[in-house]
Write a protein that binds this DNA or RNA. Structure first.
Lengths: 235, 235
DNA sequence: CATTGCATCTAACACTGTTAGGGGCATCGA
DNA sequence: TCGATGCCCCTAACAGTGTTAGATGCAATG
């Protein structure tokens, strides 16, 4: 019989820590979310479990449920937390295009710093957390100030949203080992008769994600500008 | 002691079916994928488990692992299967814009018919299944024929890809109960001071998804056309 | 000093993906 | 005709998941 067979089997009273060896601060929603972001950054979404998260906090798993009612809550809060890194920017640039570009670029930077975020956001409903809403408010306010309204405004908002989210999602999803991307490209080559274009262009396994994002955004903004000029012919 | 306490506890030899009562066809990769699509269509992604899938096929769960090496395989195959519904379309329309629009619209229709697909695809790396690649090949071939190449081609491909995928993903993710969308809109109203634009416009909880998709696509195509004219000034 | 109630604990449930290994059964070689 | 091979499905089990029930310590309050 082993006296210390497992950390979870210490039944002797004096060996059990009173709270913890180093008197950790008590649990709180903020600490949980902070730890969740840390775990997600380190190990990704599919390694996040309530037990691992609790262990990270020096606490038993069910204790989390006092502060949080479900695991989805934790993820939702984590997503919103990373959007909190983006300060609300009130600097109206001279050009609305520059303004939107700056906004979405910052947005994208945050998504890439936390590679799990884009995939998670794409999966569930767009978050309704305050930080995310603030970001969305800024985007749409800029569009309104530029002259968009009604259906055109909604279409523009969603198009821009999808561009940032989609590109970050695709980029992080394709961030795979060089070996695997090598394999994929080779497979395309061997079946070049079925996929002649894909094989000749290297459509997948691109490197220049920033470039694709920026020129894609330029396309979109060009299209928006046309819409803008058409809506207000007298300028 | 109950003689038939559970279907899995029938130990009596004569009660065990020789193969099955109605002589079901043997398991096969095709049948598994077909059943997976059915389960996904009915109950969504988070209700898909290997045991449920097996039950749907009148088979024990581990039997699936003879034909498939992991659950992810099943999902990947299911995703590719639904892209197989899209026939490769060889009808080159007069206008490249119409061609791309038709292609992406069909694409989008399929994604909406299987609401789980967009979310799943956004999460994992873009599928490498043959049906998906065929679709991508058609898209990019059209772009090449139109005159795109190099960086512009890649950017255009990804922008269009993100637009379809993103809009389908957002739409299916927001397809929630009227009550819940009511609640969300009300919350925006009560915090109208923080989100004045979002509250006045009803940016979220829109209904006209088709409209947003189409005008968004028009923006994008307008932008692409500008790029096209810039690249080939002598026309 | 007793009581209340917050915050955490241990145990446990139902479920997941997956593996180990057994066995029926058709096919093939001798 | 018999034995062996190998395919295909089975039962049993493992390690892990999210989550709930209920006990317990501990601080503040009457």
């Amino acid at each position: 019989m082993n006296s210390t067979s497992d950390a979870t089997e210490v039944h002797s009273v004096w060996l059990r820590p009173r709270r913890a060896a180093k008197e950790e601060p008590p649990l709180s929603l903020e600490r949980i979310v902070e730890a969740a972001v840390a775990v997600l950054d380190e190990d990704g979404i599919e390694k996040l479990s309530m037990r691992r998260l609790a262990q990270h906090l020096g606490v038993a798993a069910p204790s989390l449920y006092w502060h949080v009612s479900t695991k989805d809550d934790v993820v939702d809060l984590a997503v919103d937390a990373i959007f909190g890194e983006l300060l609300p920017r009130n600097e109206p640039a001279a050009e609305w295009r520059d303004e939107i570009t700056a906004l979405l670029t910052a947005w994208r930077t945050t998504l890439l710093r936390h590679p799990w975020a884009a995939a998670v956001t794409a999966r569930r409903r767009p978050s309704l957390g305050p930080n995310f809403l603030t970001q969305m408010e800024t985007l749409q306010a800029t569009l309104v100030r530029t002259g968009f309204k009604g259906d055109a405004l909604r279409a523009a908002t969603w198009a821009l949203y999808n561009h940032v989210m989609g590109s970050a999602s695709a980029e992080t999803a394709l961030h795979i080992s060089d070996q695997e991307r090598q394999l994929g490209q080779e497979r395309l080559q061997t079946e070049a008769d079925r996929y002649p274009t894909l094989a000749s262009q290297r459509y997948l396994y691109d490197d220049d994600w920033d470039g694709s994002f920026n020129t894609g955004l330029r396309y979109l903004l060009d299209g928006l500008e046309i819409q803008l000029n058409a809506a207000t012919p007298a300028r």
